[in-house]
């Protein structure tokens, strides 16, 4: 554990807490993409199966349990909570997220570390996480106002990605045999998607106008 990794994990944790706080207290999920949240729930469910097969640390296990619990809780709120589900922008959230799942799974079957059940699912979760934000970005583009909480949520998710890249660089230079191509490349793709979003987010914020992403 290094400072970049810890900062990354805490940003990730904080982004999810912000989103849960928004949904739980305001009873609204306006501007939040259910498609993205369902993809994240699938990402965590397929990545953290090793919770049952191996032990790394108490920190590791607790964080995994939190990510699993929180992602399914958010999906539950958006789909089934009497009040929250009414604020969901269903007509705007039209990204076909199923089209992301199959290519990621095929890629995981082709490019992986080891051809075992857990490893292929772990690899699938990395590929899927890289593109899981896409429905959220499309929704942000379509919704008139990016409210503060949703904007902050995406901001802290971006911070999480940035810190993880610093963590990989740090580990590469301080640990022997630390190189993880699959993790790095999918992580870079994911960060590039965020960087693109940030550019337009900051631009629209400075001009205080509606967020407009290129088609």
């Amino acid at each position: 554990m290094n400072i970049f990794r810890l900062a990354g994990d805490m940003s990730h944790l904080f982004s999810i807490l912000l989103l849960l706080l928004k949904i739980h207290t305001i009873k609204s999920c306006a501007g939040v993409s259910l498609k993205t949240q369902e993809l994240y729930a699938l990402v965590f469910a397929t990545r953290y199966l090793d919770i049952f097969t191996g032990y790394i640390s108490l920190y590791n296990t607790l964080m995994k349990m939190f990510f699993l619990w929180s992602s399914f809780t958010i999906v539950w709120y958006m789909r089934y909570h009497n009040v929250v589900r009414r604020s969901y922008d269903k007509d705007q959230d039209t990204f076909r997220h199923y089209f992301l799942i199959l290519p990621c799974f095929i890629l995981a079957l082709l490019v992986h570390e080891k051809f075992t059940f857990l490893e292929v699912l772990w690899t699938f979760s990395l590929y899927l996480e890289a593109v899981a934000i896409l429905p959220q970005l499309v929704l942000l583009q379509r919704t008139r106002n990016v409210d503060n909480l949703t904007g902050h949520y995406v901001f802290f998710l971006g911070a999480y990605r940035s810190f993880y890249i610093l963590n990989w660089i740090y580990r590469y230079f301080t640990e022997q045999n630390y190189y993880k191509w699959i993790t790095w490349i999918s992580g870079l793709v994911q960060t590039a998607l965020y960087a693109d979003f940030f550019y337009y987010y900051v631009k629209s914020w400075r001009n205080s106008e509606r967020l407009q992403l290129p088609a």
């Binding site: 990794r5 994990d9 990730h12 090793d50 191996g54 790394i56 590791n60 964080m63 995994k64 990510f67 570390e113 772990w122 993880y164 963590n167 045999n177 630390y178 190189y179 993880k180 191509w181 699959i182 993790t183």
Partner: peptide, 10 residues
């Protein structure tokens, strides 16, 4: 080709 060991990152 990947490094050795379990996936210790989240």
């Amino acid at each position: 080709n990947q490094g050795e060991g379990p996936h210790d990152e989240l």
